[in-house]
């Protein structure tokens, strides 16, 4: 046969060229894509930063020449630092959760998964708080370029965190129902990868 160059053998059913899990590769590809997504959002934010025709502005107060109304600077570094800290901690919890799953430690896998999800939820709580503050300070999606770019950028990040929290809760739920063990390490790993990425993006935004 001309197929002589192709010897047949009984490969294991789940063949993999690299030894890596398919899902993990796909998630890496996804993260590559997301990098460009957030880079575009962040660049737009930066490009538009100095182009606002009306306030409120991120870092300085702005007085409306027509009405004399003054808008204070929007960005509140202390609050954001706190929420950033919470998100960073969540990454640590995620690492701990992952290693607990790999160990097959049912107790700590639950604890750390729950902590991660909780930290994520806390971050979202901060974000909701900040958003309402900003709206009260006069900054809306429609108000000016800063409002549009800021809310869109941080909103998309928030949506990613939300998706992550849902993912974590799903993991937690499964853990409680039937337990996560070493065989699930790959799946938890993928979730962790995503979670760390979302974290890193926040650092870039911050």
């Amino acid at each position: 046969m001309a197929t002589a160059a192709i010897e047949r053998h009984d490969a294991p059913h789940h063949h993999s060229s690299t030894g890596l899990d398919n899902t993990k590769i796909a998630v890496w590809a996804f993260i590559g894509s997301e990098c460009l997504f957030f880079m575009s959002l962040i660049s737009t934010y930066l490009i538009y930063k100095g182009r606002n025709l009306v306030g409120p502005l991120p870092h300085e107060a702005w007085t409306d020449p027509a009405t004399g109304e003054t808008f204070k600077a929007i960005l509140n570094i202390p609050v954001t630092s706190a929420s950033t800290f919470v998100l960073l901690m969540s990454s640590l919890f995620m690492v701990l959760a992952h290693s607990a799953v790999v160990r097959g430690d049912r107790k700590y896998s639950k604890i750390w998964l729950a902590s991660t999800a909780l930290a994520g939820a806390t971050f979202l709580g901060f974000q909701a708080f900040e958003f309402t503050e900003f709206v009260h300070a006069g900054l809306t999606l429609k108000r000016n370029l800063f409002g549009s770019t800021f809310f869109t950028l941080t909103g998309f990040h928030g949506a990613h965190v939300t998706a992550g929290v849902i993912w974590l809760i799903t993991l937690l739920f499964i853990d409680m129902k039937r337990g996560l063990g070493p065989r699930d390490a790959g799946n938890v790993d993928v979730c962790a990868l995503y979670w760390h990425f979302v974290d890193v993006v926040w650092i870039a935004i911050f």
Partner: peptide, 30 residues
């Protein structure tokens, strides 16, 4: 993988402008 997220962002801006009144391409907002 690397090119589509960029147009996704561009289109999202346009979509938000058209549906939610953001200002990404609003000339009057600078």
């Amino acid at each position: 993988i690397l090119a589509f997220p960029i147009i996704t962002v561009a289109l999202t801006f346009l979509q938000f402008d058209r549906f939610f009144g953001t200002n990404f391409y609003t000339v009057a907002a600078g």
